[in-house]
Simulated scan of single mutants.
Amino acid sequence: MRRIFGSKVVRGDQVRQKAHRKVHLRPTVLATPKDTWPKIEKLGLTMQQDGVRDWCQYFHFEHSPAYQKIQLRFWEAVDTFDPNSIAAILHAHPYHVDSLLQMSEVSRLGEDIQMASELIERALCSFESSFHTLFNYTQANCRLDYSRAENRSFFLTLFRHLSYISRRGCHRTALEFCKLLLALNPEKDPLCALLIIDYCAVRGGEYRFLIDLFHAWEPHRNLSQLPNFAFSVPLAMFHSQNREEKEGEGGGETEANKRLQDALLMFPCLLPILLDKCGVTLDPAVTSHSLFTQPIEREPNGLKLLMKLYVERSHSLWKEPRQRPSKYRLQGQSSQALQ
């Protein structure tokens, strides 16, 4: 470039680029601002500390009077059922989080997944720029109350962000966001992060984390009563033991087999629909047994929904090439469970 146009022209162009470069308020970790984004502005979204109870620090987001006016305009725009009204608010206030969430959904419904994901990342940057100085989400002792309206948008933003990055194949990163979502309110788990965290852990290869979580929470949360944990934990044990054997640490598969048999006895209706989703024909010894021939429609609606959610989300874990023996092991353990 210097040979063609001269050093003065190139230097002048670099100066102009620096002058027009977006200046952000502070570096962010949850999402990286892009140069094409508008400058991050403070609209009046702040975080306040509620106090410390049982070694946990409680916080909440707060809206200033100016932000409340924008929020009121947003709800009026929602009532019009016109996305252009929300887009107008977003044009005037590029980091209004509820407008970003709503327009992200509009983009998703329009099959523009890239734009939907980018709008969620902008919402994350907006939230992170308003964090309290004591809000350290890496220590797992910071809490937010989902029942407070101002906090709900942050939960939704995290949930949608981990969904989008999981779709991009970043399962290890999705697991970390799922941990954060669960840590913000582990007692109530308002967005049911426990129904997702097992999938993210197995897909991300974090088998030991899932096993440790199960052993730590099982006594007081009864995680084995959830179909996703009942089946994902033995699968994680199986792969963890295979990994240890490859590293020369031994192991065996006794506990994984026992856990899988317990899962099949507790949720027998899940086996036929899971293997059907994997494209595997059931063994005649299994199909002829009354335990596995009961239709899933007889189960309570809540349990039926949990089983279908697990099969729809996690069936690929049982049929990946590196895990292909798992689906045949599933049939073998079902036969042993009948004995």
Rank of each mutant, 00 (worst) to 15 (best):
280 V>E: 00
280 V>I: 02
280 V>M: 03
281 T>S: 12
281 T>M: 12
283 D>Y: 03
283 D>N: 05
284 P>F: 02
284 P>E: 09
284 P>Y: 01
284 P>T: 03
285 A>R: 01
285 A>N: 03
285 A>G: 02
286 V>C: 10
286 V>G: 08
286 V>Y: 06
287 T>K: 04
288 S>V: 07
288 S>I: 06
288 S>A: 08
289 H>S: 05
289 H>I: 03
289 H>C: 05
289 H>L: 04
290 S>F: 07
290 S>L: 10
290 S>C: 10
291 L>I: 07
291 L>P: 02
292 F>R: 03
293 T>R: 08
293 T>V: 09
294 Q>D: 13
294 Q>N: 13
294 Q>K: 13
295 P>M: 14
295 P>V: 10
296 I>E: 00
296 I>V: 07
296 I>F: 03
296 I>Q: 02
296 I>K: 00
298 R>G: 11
298 R>V: 07
298 R>W: 06
299 E>N: 15
299 E>H: 14
300 P>K: 12
300 P>A: 12
302 G>T: 11
302 G>W: 12
302 G>K: 13
302 G>I: 11
303 L>D: 13
304 K>H: 10
304 K>T: 06
304 K>A: 12
305 L>S: 15
306 L>P: 03
306 L>F: 07
306 L>S: 08
306 L>H: 03
306 L>W: 01
306 L>I: 09
307 M>R: 10
307 M>V: 11
308 K>P: 05
308 K>F: 06
308 K>S: 15
308 K>A: 14
309 L>D: 12
309 L>N: 10
310 Y>L: 15
312 E>H: 12
313 R>E: 15
313 R>T: 15
313 R>F: 08
313 R>Y: 09
314 S>H: 04
314 S>I: 08
315 H>D: 10
315 H>I: 05
316 S>C: 13
316 S>F: 04
316 S>M: 10
316 S>T: 05
317 L>E: 00
317 L>D: 00
317 L>I: 03
318 W>I: 09
318 W>F: 13
318 W>Y: 11
319 K>R: 15
319 K>F: 08
319 K>Y: 08
319 K>G: 07
322 R>S: 14
322 R>D: 15
322 R>W: 15
323 Q>I: 09
324 R>F: 06
324 R>H: 04
324 R>V: 04
325 P>F: 01
326 S>W: 00
326 S>R: 01
326 S>F: 01
327 K>A: 08
327 K>S: 12
328 Y>K: 01
328 Y>G: 01
329 R>Q: 05
329 R>W: 07
330 L>E: 06
330 L>G: 02
331 Q>Y: 04
331 Q>F: 02
332 G>M: 13
332 G>D: 13
333 Q>A: 02
333 Q>G: 03
333 Q>Y: 05
333 Q>F: 02
333 Q>E: 09
334 S>M: 04
334 S>I: 02
334 S>H: 00
334 S>Y: 00
335 S>K: 12
335 S>Q: 06
335 S>E: 11
336 Q>V: 11
336 Q>D: 13
336 Q>M: 14
336 Q>I: 12
337 A>H: 06
